[in-house]
Amino acid sequence: MSYFFQQLVNGIMLGSVYSLVALGLTLIFGILGVAHFAHGHFYMLGAFLVFFLSVSFGVPYWAALVIAVAVFCLVGVGIEFVYRPVRDKSDINAFIVAIGMLLVIEEAVRAVWGTGNRRITNPYPQVLKFAGITLELQRLIVIGAAIVLIVLLHLFIKRTRMGSAIEAVAQDREGAALVGISVNRVSILTFSVATGLAAAAAALAAPLAFIAPDMANTLVLKAFVIIVLGGLGSIKGAILGGYLLGVMEALAIAYISPAYKDVWAFAALILILAIKPNGLFGGRD
C-alpha cells in the first residue's frame, strides 16, 4: 500500500509541473486561439536559464528562480509580437510559426550548452520519511509551490482589473473589444503570464532530473492533451487535467509498463474526445 502512495505522490509532483505548463497553454491556446507549440521549449529554456544562473554564476537557487520568472515574463512579450501577424489566421499558421520558433530555440540551446544532459544541484536534497513514503524535500517544494502559484493566478484573474480583462476576452473577444478592452494588451499580458509560469515550473522541477535540449518534446504534447481534455480555455480543466495526467502516468509506469507510459494518456484522449468531442469540461467550439 505504501508503494501505491509513493507512486501517488510522484504522480502529484509530475501533475504539478503539468498543471503549471498546461495553465499557460490553455490561456494562450484557449483564449487567444494561438497553437503555441513552442511552449514546452520555453520551459526547457527556463530550465537552462536557471542552470546558467546557478551553476555558472553561483546565484542562489531561489534568486535564480525569481530572475528566471521575471526574464520570461519579458520574453513572453516578445513571443506575442512574433505571433501577432498570424493570431487571427487559421490555427495551422500559428502552429507553423511555433515550429519555426522551437527549431530556433532548440538549436540555439544546443549551440550554447551542447547536446548532453546537464544537472542543476538539488537545493533541498534532504529525504523525508513519512508512513512508509520516502520523499525528497524538493519534490514537496514543487507540489507546494505549484499550489501557491495556482492560487496566485486565480486571485490575479478574479480580483484584479487586468485579470478580469483576460477573462472577458476569454469569454467573448469581440464583446471585450466593444467595451474598450484592448485585445492586444490582453494578448501581451497572457503570453507574459503563461511564459512566466512555464519558467517557474521549469525552475522548480529542473533540480529533480537531467536537463537537455530535447527534454520538452513530449511535455508540450501532454500539455495539449491536458488542455483539450479539460476543455480549451478552461483554467479549472487545465489544473484538474494536469494532476489527473500526472497521477495516471505515475501509476501506469508503476503498474502497467514504463515503455508505453506516454501511450495511455494519448489513447485516453482519443477515446474521450470520440465520446465527448469538446473535452471533459465542455469547453468552447
Binding site: A35, I92, F95, L221, F266, I270, D285
Partner: peptide
C-alpha cells in the same frame, strides 16, 4: 473539429 482534430491526429501519430 478544428484544434481538437489536430491534437487527436498528433496523439495517434505519437501512439
Amino acid at each position: 473539429k478544428g484544434p481538437y482534430f489536430i491534437i487527436v491526429t498528433l496523439c495517434f501519430n505519437f501512439i
